[in-house]
Design a protein around this nucleic acid. Sequence first.
DNA 1: GCACTCCTGACCAAGAAGGTCAGGAAAGTC
DNA 2: GACTTTCCTGACCTTCTTGGTCAGGAGTGC
Lengths: 152, 152
Amino acid sequence: MRVSAKADYAVRAAAELAAAGNGGPVKGERLAEAQDIPLQFLEHILLELKHHGIVRARRGAKGGYWLARPADEVTVAEIVRAVEGPIAHVQSTPPEAIEYRGNAEHLKDVWIAVRASLRNVLEEVTLADLVSGELPSVVSDLVADPDAWVAR
Amino acid sequence: MRVSAKADYAVRAAAELAAAGNGGPVKGERLAEAQDIPLQFLEHILLELKHHGIVRARRGAKGGYWLARPADEVTVAEIVRAVEGPIAHVQSTPPEAIEYRGNAEHLKDVWIAVRASLRNVLEEVTLADLVSGELPSVVSDLVADPDAWVAR
DNA sequence: GCACTCCTGACCAAGAAGGTCAGGAAAGTC
DNA sequence: GACTTTCCTGACCTTCTTGGTCAGGAGTGC
């Protein structure tokens, strides 16, 4: 139930690309500096994003990375899936595929709900939202509760 | 963003204890059989639950495990925290403690929302709910959407 | 041809995941 | 007091993941 450095880095780099808009390709080095991410590690991450069709790239002078689609069509969920794999799998298998026995029978519903609630957040937030700061109401509602900010 | 085998096992074992109610201590072996969990691994998990005050135990003949509190006062969130540590940490630190720069500034809010939405599910479901199958509305609402059941 | 930048695979150290093994320490029974 | 039962604990093990680094190859633009 944790968010990996890789996913965090990936979203941050993608946010920079979203902000760059159509100003031409952005070098990996600039992304790394802007978000303070180890360059070589970031390059691997960007490659994964490219393989998943989220980002495009060109080599050589004037080369760099840019978003494959408009920033308001790329969700945080996609990026997380690209680098971390499926969201909220249990024991590495999707919750709907598990058969629970005895008194744990309804646990399946709980894990399904967990996944759905994660999706409700991650699939609603686009890179455009992230950059503009105008987050969808599902997020701002959750964040408005002071209780959401306390550690536990 | 995944649920470990340990957390899954822990909740399942706890559900069995909840179902056993006041019928006296339940042997580890019976829990392991009921939920098909490797016994020795389960014992380590139960020990962690004990250290976190969720479960109690007695050794010897007629010994076994039981819940330290009534089943309707133990949430799934507690159990997950006991065996997996804090929920939805980013890079192993709580989201509210991270400072984001540049265009990723609002990412903090997104991770906070992720954590809050997980809590909304996990802290609402008690072991009593789990065993009875009468899950809180936040869960049943999420599960009612057929979309929650499709892999992605 | 040369500089620039991405692309790729190999490698690596540390830690977590998912267990197993062996023995010790209480609790109950005879 | 001996014996059985069951929990308690630490050591160990294998495999995978995490979070990187290193070295070199392959396009691209001038």
